[in-house]
Design a protein around this nucleic acid. Structure first.
Length: 823
RNA sequence: GCCGGGGUGGCGAAACUGGUCAUACGCGCCUGACUUAAAAUCAGGUGUCCCUUCGAGGGGCGUGAGGGUUCGACUCCCUCCCCCGGCACCA
């Protein structure tokens, strides 16, 4: 008896062969229609985990499928290697982050190879390679030249645990995205990239990304937070310059009864200076600053504020309205100053009520008169303008546009758009990242490091533990102290490093020209391979990597380095792999280790198991028994496929054409639907169809007059359709059937439309919506024949009970529906 | 509050542009074959309730709830309920 398929020997042998022969290397330029498929590069924090297995399985199935369909496929993998985990682990072990990182990369790479992924390793790199981060620095200098990188003192997010600043995108509900610590605000001088310049394009170009889920587009729209309104200028008592506010409701301007500044607003100081309000402002500000962001922005808290003793002029009524500083106005949105319209804004209303400020109605609903003395909430609905001079009676669907136009005419304001998105804070006070290529000189200011001196490499002999104040690089005196490139005076390097999201913003361009040491990548190869045809990765990057990379891409276009406005118009967000609905982790004890799966059931069974579990975008909760569940699902099925191969391979093949029959027709239908399934990423149903075909093949084999040639043909189709998902066993089986070459070099099977179409179908006959008979008819049956056959049925006649149908509906070829009046 | 996605067997999940008694495929469970036995493998069964002595069959109800459109609704429309996720003192 033939032994079972020995997955271990086969997988290890083929995996090695694929690596040794650079089996999946893509040419410099595509040799036919191209498919550039990319999966978000992994962070090498240890060995491969199930999340990697899932995304690699999906990605690799698509890459292999595309190759078989004749595309020139590029499927690379690099490593997102800078960042805090490396540093933290290294601090714990007392080694350099470099050692830890490169060791993990080696391990992760070998696991990806063991999984059978068809990556082009010749283009692989790690972002901590100086040959990569040199170009981060190069880009930084280009951005600096263009005014897209700037250094500014601002209130920024500070993670007290990681001891570094964070971008807004890295603060989730007031907590650090990485370590969950409550984030505080600090005033620091930091480097920013001007993402807000691109807010409009980031929203508008979402339309290009037709291969994105609605959910993802919504996440980005929410994050960018575009809102339309107007800027209105208010004159301020004792100030020569007016102050601009942003409002989405310029039509309520006549109801503005006070004016509010964020407590941090510099104008507060000027207004209160030298007055009795100065002390009050200081203590109020101290109180506000002691709050965490979470408390400060909580809607539960009562709004607090103080009068600053001065007035602004309502530009439409000419009225003097008091200027307050209040904690509900934020310095970093809009202009940090608002006009308060208590009648039509709930926050202003609450504030007015607690400080006894006037409420004036500017929009009156049709239903009844709003009365400021009895209102218990702001009115936000429709109505007509009242108390608004010549605008009285203007309905609210036109009021905003009308008032905005008038403000523009009068020179008191203009149409404006505001965004929630802030500029990207990219400096980090940590060691393990790309050094910022700037030298600070007392005389010359911020001086770029000359291009020929790039890369500015990270010094190795540094105490890289974060200090909580400055970057650890500040302690590397020999490295820090340099001469100013401009004037030659003593100067010092910038000691911050770049956010690691800088690396991931353009790494997919570098794959295209990974060994170029003249430029980040050549335009020629970029134009040839970009945009990415299919990108895969987790939804957790919705407002992080996926915003930054789109921003970067637009700059590349503006710099003439790239063509496509969007880098990844098609994106598949795979679900999360969990166990007990929780993220897998060693400490939780719910880790299902891929290595164990390789040992017990093999890479093919593991890949297939994950793909079979459900749609790729759905979360997958691994069953409690862990790896062993593979042993009950895809492992035995692969053995079943293998036995079929062995038996089909051993049977003598009769000469001549294979006869068409039900099994061959079934095979063609399977090719048809499985192809469509791959195109729709519906791997679970593709596997189900293949299981059905295999079941049918076993049934056929048991028939006395089974034709070995038919069986062989069907088995070969199964292998071809399966090999993108289970690359090892199918390749071995292909050779077992006597083929010289590899199954992976075969073209994707095509179906015969004639054979795939069913010759005969089962027509159902319904009487009053109930199925009463099934009749086998030719697939091209006419309506007349269908109806004739339906009336010929005894069962149907019985249920008609002699009554004449009021309605006869025929839907060729599958359905006849008869409707009789019921009494 | 605003926005997005979902609710189908014991479980993971199928179902084309509304059209074969919804539940494919697989897991689990039940029965049988093989075996001294077990595992593995193979074959069959498995929504639910009721009628029928068995057999075979027949009938009612079933895709979160309730309405509607239609000859026909998991699929379309309306009103709810619940779950998951994003944004939110954003002016």
């Amino acid at each position: 008896m033939e032994p079972d398929y020995e997955f271990r020997e086969v997988e290890e042998r083929l995996a090695r062969e694929w690596v040794d022969t650079e089996r999946w290397a893509a040419p410099r330029l595509p040799s036919s229609d191209k498919r550039y498929v990319v999966t978000m590069f992994p962070y090498p924090s240890g060995d491969m985990h199930m999340g990697h297995v899932e995304v690699f399985s999906i990605h690799d199935a698509l890459a292999r499928f595309s190759r078989m369909r004749g595309f020139s496929v590029l499927s690379p993998l690099g490593f997102d290697a800078f960042g805090l985990p490396a540093e933290n682990a290294a601090i714990k072990r007392g080694i350099n982050p470099k050692e830890w990182t490169y060791a993990n990369i080696a391990q992760l790479k070998s696991s990806a190879q063991r999984l059978g992924c068809s990556f082009d390793w010749s283009r692989s790199f790690a972002t901590c390679d100086p040959s990569f981060y040199k170009w981060n620095q190069w880009f930084f200098l280009r951005f600096f030249e263009r005014g897209l990188a700037y250094r500014e003192r601002a209130p920024v997010n500070w993670c007290p645990n990681d001891k570094t600043v964070l971008a807004n995108e890295q603060v989730i509900a007031g907590r650090c995205e990485r370590c969950d610590a409550v984030v505080t605000k600090r005033w620091l001088t930091q480097w920013f990239f001007r993402t807000t310049d691109y807010a409009d394009r980031l929203i508008d170009d979402l339309a290009i990304n037709v291969g994105w889920s609605e959910r993802l587009k919504m996440l980005q729209r929410n994050w960018i937070g575009r809102s339309e309104g107007a800027e209105v200028r208010f004159d301020i008592e004792g100030e020569s310059e007016p102050v601009t506010v942003f409002t989405t409701r310029p039509d309520t301007l006549w109801g503005a009864t006070f004016f509010v500044l964020a407590p941090e607003h510099p104008l507060c100081d000027r207004l209160a200076r030298g007055t009795e309000y100065e002390g009050r402002l200081a203590s109020f500000r101290a109180k506000v600053e002691s709050l965490t962001e979470i408390d400060r922005t909580s809607t539960e808290r009562a709004k607090k504020g103080i009068w600053l003793g001065k007035h602004a002029t309502n530009p439409v009524t000419g009225e003097a309205i008091p200027i307050w500083a209040a904690d509900y106005v934020l310095m970093d949105y809009g202009t940090g100053a608002v006009m308060a319209v208590p009648a039509h804004d709930q926050r202003d209303f609450e504030f007015a009520r607690s400080y006894d400020l006037p409420v004036r109605v500017a929009i009156q609903p049709a239903s009844g008169a709003l009365d400021p003395s009895t209102m218990d909430a702001a009115y936000l609905g429709e109505g007509v303008m009242v108390g608004s001079g010549t605008f009285d009676g203007t309905p609210s669907d036109r009021s905003v546009a009308a008032v905005t136009q008038w403000l523009e005419q009068e020179g008191r304001g203009r149409h404006a758009v505001n965004y929630r998105l802030r500029d990207w804070l990219i400096s980090r006070q940590r060691y393990w990242g790309t050094p910022i290529p700037i030298v600070h000189c007392a005389a010359c200011g911020e001086v770029p490091v000359p291009e020929e001196e790039l890369p500015v490499t990270l010094p190795d002999d540094v105490d890289f533990a974060p200090t909580g104040e400055q970057s650890p690089l500040a302690g590397a005196h020999e490295w820090v102290n340099v001469r100013c490139p401009k004037c030659g005076a003593d100067a010092h390097r910038d000691t911050d490093t770049m956010d690691t999201f800088v690396d991931s913003s353009w790494y997919f361009h570098r794959y295209l020209d990974a060994h170029n040491d003249e430029e980040p990548f050549a335009r020629e190869v970029d134009d040839a391979w970009m945009a990415i045809d299919q990108y895969t990765g987790g939804i957790e990057h919705a407002v992080l990597h996926l915003i930054y990379a789109r921003f970067w891409q637009k700059i590349l276009v503006d710099m003439g380095m790239a063509r496509d406005p969007e880098p990844f118009p098609a994106l598949l967000n795979q679900g999360q792999v969990t166990m007990g609905a929780k993220r897998m982790s060693k400490s939780r004890g719910n880790l299902v280790d891929p290595t164990k799966a390789f040992e017990r059931y093999g890479a093919d069974a593991l890949r297939l198991y994950i793909l079979f579990s459900g749609p790729p975008d759905a979360d997958f909760d691994w069953p409690e028994e862990g790896v062993d569940s593979i042993g009950r699902v895809t492992y035995p099925w692969l053995q079943r496929v293998w036995r079929l191969v062995v038996e089909a391979g051993d049977a003598p093949v009769t000469q001549g054409a294979t006869s068409a029959g039900p099994l061959i027709e079934r095979m063609h239908r399977t090719i048809k639907v499985v192809t469509a399934d791959y195109e729709a990423f519906s791997f679970n149903t593709a596997i189900a169809r293949l299981m059905e075909l295999v079941n049918d093949a076993y049934r056929y084999k048991a028939e006395p007059d089974a034709d070995a040639a038919v069986l062989r043909r069907v088995v070969e189709s199964v292998l071809l359709l399966l090999c993108p998902m289970a690359p090892f066993v199918t390749d071995e089986a292909w050779r077992r059937l006597g083929h010289e070459g590899s199954v992976h070099d075969e073209p994707w099977p095509v179906f015969d439309a004639l054979l795939a179409a069913e010759q005969e179908v089962v027509m159902i006959v319904q009487v009053n919506g109930r199925v009463r008979d099934r009749i086998t008819v030719p697939a091209d049956v006419s309506e007349d024949i269908m109806v004739e056959r339906a009336f010929g049925s005894d069962k149907v006649r019985e249920h008609l009970g002699g009554r004449e149908p009021a309605k006869v509906i025929a839907r060729p070829p599958k359905l006849v529906s008869l409707v009789v009046a019921t009494d």
